[in-house]
Design a protein around this nucleic acid. Structure first.
Lengths: 199, 199
DNA sequence: CGCATCCGATACGTCTATGCATCTGATACG
DNA sequence: CGTATCAGATGCATAGACGTATCGGATGCG
């Protein structure tokens, strides 16, 4: 641990990350300038270059922070003793307003990952953790409901995530036509019974 | 019809669109420079500004061209007399290699649409047409197979599209782990029986 | 309370993309 | 075959983002 100041740095770093989220969501990664982010955070570029080496590094840090937080929420939800199937569906279908910004940022990060193997590796790792947690929750709830999967749990988790991401895209393009979470509520229960069998 | 040249213009326009597809796919809309696109097409920026007013206009034209072409393929497929349910699933699951570039570009356009109401309107219209075609094909095939839908056809079409888009994202991030089309092949048949009833 | 250290601000130079204004050469028509 | 017109090339001026090098001020410790 360095001698000097220990309170300022984390605060400005957090402020920059928060501002980056908003700016990236609003304008996209490439269009958002470092200066805009700093201004929005109440700092100058000096602060930025003191905390990050490049806009890409900031992007990755932002994604990492979000992934970790998301995984935490997911695992605590799944390890809660009273989790039902409906509860799991609800968790997937309840989309908070703040989710929109994250959708924009993570989707752009996905596009970046498709182009850049290094980012792809990072994304794949986070996705695998999330999928594993979801798969574990699924088997857990299903067995408790007296049903067993007829397909691979991990692959079913992939399907659920695909529905969620694909559904969010449609919802955010035309919120009036498709409220966020509607696809999940309408179809997931049926899907879960379709790919399980009693006992 | 103008007097002057009639053959050069369409050719360079097409070349610019094709080059734009490649550059946008490779680098993203904002990162790809007009100059790169022109160079890749074998022209200079003079040609570009003669055919388009801005990079955004080019982007929109590219998206429009692709949408129209996609809708054409879809409708001819659906109106083919011998289309079976399996044929429809296959059509959704068979992902050509060229699809990757289009995925990158259209997904970026979707992000753009989420931010810009005008683009959202254009995207929503194209999506609605595609969904309508798909819904028509679904009901058509299902009734011929002696089954009737228990859910709204348009909403089911939304689900299929969500699965496809969400699945493509995962496939392109880790092609080794999830071959394109695998989710569709594994799950769509079961989904289609789950949300239909005999007779 | 004084001081060393580190954080963030300021100022500068550089580079790249853009858009326009002008020019040249190709095309279609008389 | 000559010519008017238009597509596309060339050159330049501008703007904005980036990165660094340096400076000032706040912080925590002795």
């Amino acid at each position: 641990m360095p001698k000097g100041v220990t309170k300022r740095r984390p605060r400005t770093r957090a402020a920059l990350l928060q501002a980056a989220l908003e700016c990236f969501a609003e304008q996209g990664f490439r269009a958002a300038s470092i200066e805009q982010i700093c201004e929005s955070a109440g700092y100058t570029r000096g602060a930025f270059y003191s905390n990050f080496n490049s806009k890409e590094e900031l992007f990755l840090a932002l994604f990492d922070a979000h992934s970790e937080q998301l995984l935490d929420r997911m695992t605590t939800l799944i390890d809660s003793t009273e989790l039902t199937l409906q509860g799991l569906v609800d968790a997937l279908a309840d989309i908070e307003p703040a989710e929109r910004d994250w959708y924009l940022v993570t989707t752009e990060f996905t596009l970046h990952a498709i182009r850049d193997p290094q980012a792809a590796a990072a994304l794949a790792q986070h996705d695998a953790q999330l999928r594993a947690a979801l798969a574990r929750g699924l088997t857990h709830c299903l067995t408790r409901a007296g049903r067993t999967l007829t397909v691979d749990a991990d692959e079913l988790a992939r399907l659920l995530i695909a529905v969620r991401e694909g559904g969010l895209a449609q919802s955010y393009v035309e919120p009036e036509q498709l409220p966020p979470g509607q696809l999940e509520r309408r179809f997931l229960p049926g899907v879960l019974t379709a790919f399980t069998t009693e006992g």
